[in-house]
Nucleic acid binder design. Structure first.
Lengths: 102, 102
DNA sequence: CAGTATCCGTATCGATACTG
DNA sequence: CAGTATCGATACGGATACTG
């Protein structure tokens, strides 16, 4: 999704509107910290290029935090407080989707 | 935004993820019924082609309802119950955006 | 007034191969 | 393992002119 200028929902849609992002956040919500490879395994179909882009966005938005383990190339991603605050919204969206699905 | 296959949030993001849609829904939320021209006036910058596409989507998703006045080309759009149920989510997104805006 | 038709630039995303 | 580079398809949306 292209960066939107949509008033007060701007930030939220800039984060949630991209393809894969909701799944990613759902996954993050259930794990304290995840690695790149784990995400690829869990979110089937996403390719590294796209995943990398999403993680970059989310980190820049302050929704997730990247922690690189010292002396390794290993790193982990986890939700920030800002990211955790997104979970209830995601849940509400899921509820809505299930309630009104045809 | 391209149609996504994102599990349980699918429907919600398919509706909310498009450019302009949040503003449109906000506008609908405050008016019992609106005409095409009013929307164009209110949502500055949207062009008829795009507005038409959004309205088509939203109607097809059952989020809004189109009512054509008999014997005229005039018509009005208003939220359905399904559409009204989206408002709290939109509000939550706005709150989140305002809370964490840099 | 309420759209539709056409054209076109750009953003987005997938596939795939490659790197430190 | 954790990405980046490159290429290409296509979806999205803006501008504009036109129609019933």
């Amino acid at each position: 999704m292209q960066k939107q200028t949509i008033g007060c929902v701007k930030a939220a849609t800039a984060v949630l509107g991209d393809k894969w992002t909701p799944q990613l956040l759902r996954f993050f919500a259930n794990e304290p910290a995840v690695r790149f490879g784990s995400i690829q395994d869990f979110v089937e179909g996403i390719n590294p290029r796209t995943l990398s882009a999403r993680l970059g966005n989310l980190e820049q938005e302050g929704v997730i935090q990247k922690i690189t383990k010292p002396n390794t190339t290993r790193c982990e991603y986890c939700l920030t407080e800002k990211g955790k605050a997104l979970i209830p919204i995601l849940t509400a969206m899921e509820t809505w989707s299930r309630t009104y699905e045809s």
